[in-house]
Nucleic acid binder design. Structure first.
Lengths: 105, 105
DNA sequence: CTGGTTGTACGATCGATAGCGAACAACGAG
DNA sequence: CTCGTTGTTCGCTATCGATCGTACAACCAG
């Protein structure tokens, strides 16, 4: 229940996703850009496939914020981490929110 | 152009309203609550008509963030300040955003 | 004028957060 | 086994942001 069994990543359950956390995660320009790109590719991408004007360790930080807010799910495979937008869960919990945010240029 | 002629309040023009600023303003529980209440009353309300678990000076801070993000417009009358939600401008600039945020319980 | 109401301004505190580099861990390919 | 790749973790720094209390300014009502 509490033990993160060796490398498990914390993801909030759909009901645990909080609106303020989601809004906060989206309020950073870098993270908003990451979410946009993730949405555009409509699938999974590794952290490294985004080229960002920030250091790797900073990128790790942003992916953690996105993951813990509930916006993104991370799957580990080998040394890589694949990120996927939790479209269905977010849309179910906050209908229209992602659509309007992503539609805004 | 730059001079705040004795007590003028800064409000961004509709085109100047930035998505990240709006999302950041809405990501605080207190401000989100203020926006909800403002929307519910569908008109103007003075700062003092909200009872909040925070000090007056903190309230001033939150209204400034809301105003400078473009979410709210402040009209001065006597010693009071009337706050109004900029529904039309926000809806025009970010269609569906406020609807989805306010619809989320 | 006096007092009450409304809200701002200022200064301070304190936790959160974005950013970096360096070191490390895990893995795949040679 | 040895690299190179991928990404984390660990300090550390600097800034931002929410909060408060006190003092002040503007106005309205008596």
């Amino acid at each position: 229940m509490e033990a993160t069994t060796t490398g498990e990543l914390r993801h909030p359950a759909p009901e645990e996703i909080r609106l303020t956390d989601v809004l906060h995660a989206l309020s950073d320009p870098i993270r908003l850009d990451l979410v946009r790109q993730l949405d555009a590719c409509a699938g999974e991408r590794t952290c490294g496939s985004f080229d960002l004007p920030i250091a790797k360790s900073t990128s790790t930080h942003h992916w953690r914020v996105l993951r813990e807010s509930g916006l993104v799910v991370t799957r580990e495979e080998g040394t890589k981490r694949y990120q996927r937008l939790r479209r269905a869960e977010i849309d179910a919990r906050f209908p229209g929110l992602l659509d309007s945010v992503l539609a805004a240029s």
